[in-house]
Design a protein around this nucleic acid. Structure first.
Lengths: 204, 204
DNA sequence: TCTAAATATGAGTTGTCGCTCGGTTCTGTG
DNA sequence: CACAGAACCGAGCGACAACTCATATTTAGA
């Protein structure tokens, strides 16, 4: 599962890889995955096809590298936000998580949207899958550390909550962006999570 | 946005369309969207390409027709389930909705999975989008009719809840099918929704 | 039975795709 | 400054894609 191709050592080679990924991103946004071809990427990057194949064994490796990078960025935004909340109240922490997920979609929004909606989600290429896995792990750990919530299975609960938030925001951005700007949906999601996690009044 | 092609009138023509859609479904499941070609579909259907183009203007029309049919089926399963719950308790109704959504994924599960994960979500082709729109409308109406819940915006609430349930189940089936079989996740989702909708104790 | 419309055929046109390979140009190092 | 290896080039190959059209077959119904 490793690179079958040359790894860049000189500086100019690293620059070439960079310009190839940038071209891939542009074409993905402008023309979509279906019209993304290695020839087109190379032309847009101002580089020859041969050069492209020095560093990427095929078209999907290119997209995978891009998706991986974006996924890392998204996960980092969310996880950073999440980790700042470990000593805050549940309400604040949940709202932080939700804002973090919204923020993660605002980094290179067009690219993220194109990757999420155009690219087939065949295992390796699945952007959301990769991001969500990391976020769920961190959220699960955060849940485990909390004492102000009722007893729940942290792994399952974070799976459900994180995926819910992610999907609702994803779909809303696609179909009803105004709901995100007004923060109406954010508020609903927050209530949903908080009510799910809050201890029952009068429970032991 | 209508058919640019011939509409079948004779019985054998309807059968041809049927066999073409069936072949499309098989190829989608076996080889994926990327390797689906009109020539391949025609060959598999035992029909010539020319015939295919009598009824479908292009490859995506074929997939769109298939997606539309599956989406109708899924929506019907869910909505039927939902409408049977209008006189039941909130708990029962919510569990019914969740079981309905799980059941909807169990009708032609491989085809549904292939459509959901392989096919690009460009507007018209988006299976989930179409299904969810209809389900949200019905769920929203069902919420409006209820008097045993706290006051919420029915449209927004159903958007959030339906999309949450759908996405969590979708992802779980893809990544952790055992969670669905054991119904652990279903229980969490149910609690999540019920807690969100239940009236606050002591509220007016 | 005859015929016009409906249906089916599939070789062929036109294009693009992914990818290779023989060769040239750069660049750090002895 | 020589030279080895890194980096780059791009015409071109074979495969396969979407889609057409001149032709053939089947059907309904008068």
């Amino acid at each position: 599962m490793e690179n079958k191709r040359r790894t860049p050592i000189q500086e100019r080679a690293r620059a070439t890889v960079e310009v190839l990924l940038e071209a891939t991103a542009q074409i993905l946004v402008e023309l979509g995955y279906a019209r993304l071809s290695t020839n087109r990427v190379a032309r847009r990057a101002g580089v020859s096809v041969g050069t492209l194949y020095q560093y990427f064994p095929n078209k999907d490796a290119l997209v995978e590298a891009l998706a991986h990078r974006v996924s890392e960025g998204q996960a980092e935004v969310i996880i950073t936000q999440l980790q700042q909340t470990h000593d805050q109240s549940l309400e604040v922490a949940i709202r932080g998580l939700i804002q973090g997920i919204i923020a993660s979609k605002r980094v290179e929004p067009e690219l993220a949207a194109a990757l999420a909606s155009e690219v087939p989600r065949n295992g390796r290429l699945d952007l959301e899958q990769a991001t969500l896995r990391r976020v769920c792990d961190v959220a699960s750990a955060a849940l485990r550390r909390r004492s102000d919530i009722r007893p729940v299975d942290p792994e399952l609960a974070s799976f459900a909550l994180v995926h819910s938030i992610f999907a609702v925001i994803q779909r809303a951005l696609q179909a009803r962006p105004e709901l995100i700007d007004d923060d109406d949906l954010g508020e609903i999601l927050a209530e949903m999570c908080i009510r799910y996690l809050s201890p029952d009044p009068g429970g032991s």
